[in-house]
Amino acid sequence: MMDPRWLLRMSQWARNPPSGKRVILVFAIIAAALAVGLIEWLGYWPDWATAERIPRRF
């Protein structure tokens, strides 16, 4: 079920849409995240940029 707060947020966006710069910024962030994901999925992600799990000490 959809949260009613999303309906309120959508109505506010319809009344006061974001500026063009903000839309471009959001799409640029989404594109950068997709590019990093694609690079990692293709296997071109460098080993030095991969996090390693550290064993826990109890």
Results as ranks from 00 to 15, higher is better:
39 I>F: 14
36 V>Q: 03
14 A>M: 14
24 I>D: 05
24 I>Q: 12
3 D>M: 05
16 N>S: 10
33 A>I: 14
38 L>R: 01
14 A>I: 01
19 S>Q: 13
37 G>Y: 01
53 R>Q: 07
57 R>Y: 06
34 L>K: 00
15 R>K: 09
12 Q>C: 03
33 A>T: 12
9 R>W: 09
9 R>Y: 07
40 E>Y: 14
23 V>N: 09
16 N>T: 10
54 I>S: 09
8 L>I: 12
13 W>D: 08
21 K>G: 11
55 P>M: 04
41 W>K: 15
18 P>E: 07
54 I>M: 08
36 V>G: 15
39 I>M: 10
19 S>I: 00
31 A>S: 15
47 D>V: 10
20 G>M: 02
35 A>N: 05
52 E>C: 02
26 V>A: 12
58 F>A: 09
16 N>W: 12
34 L>T: 08
7 L>F: 09
21 K>R: 13
8 L>Y: 08
46 P>M: 05
36 V>R: 03
8 L>M: 15
15 R>P: 00
54 I>L: 11
55 P>H: 03
1 M>H: 02
4 P>N: 03
38 L>T: 06
29 I>C: 07
46 P>R: 07
13 W>F: 11
48 W>G: 05
38 L>A: 13
35 A>V: 13
36 V>F: 14
16 N>G: 00
2 M>G: 04
24 I>V: 10
25 L>N: 10
54 I>K: 08
47 D>I: 10
24 I>F: 05
6 W>L: 15
54 I>W: 04
18 P>R: 10
57 R>G: 05
44 Y>R: 05
49 A>P: 01
11 S>E: 11
21 K>M: 07
6 W>S: 03
45 W>S: 06
50 T>F: 02
25 L>A: 11
47 D>S: 13
35 A>P: 01
13 W>M: 11
12 Q>I: 04
26 V>N: 13
56 R>F: 09
33 A>V: 07
26 V>Y: 14
34 L>G: 07
34 L>E: 06
44 Y>H: 13
33 A>D: 08
38 L>N: 02
28 A>T: 14
5 R>W: 03
50 T>G: 01
43 G>N: 07
51 A>E: 08
25 L>I: 01
17 P>Y: 06
57 R>I: 11
38 L>C: 05
8 L>P: 00
30 I>V: 12
58 F>I: 13
2 M>D: 13
18 P>L: 12
53 R>Y: 04
11 S>Y: 03
35 A>T: 15
9 R>M: 15
53 R>G: 03
3 D>I: 02
28 A>V: 12
51 A>V: 10
39 I>P: 00
30 I>P: 00
15 R>M: 14
34 L>F: 11
20 G>V: 01
56 R>A: 14
53 R>C: 01
53 R>E: 11
32 A>E: 07
2 M>W: 02
21 K>F: 11
34 L>P: 04
28 A>R: 03
21 K>Q: 11
15 R>F: 12
31 A>K: 04
36 V>T: 12
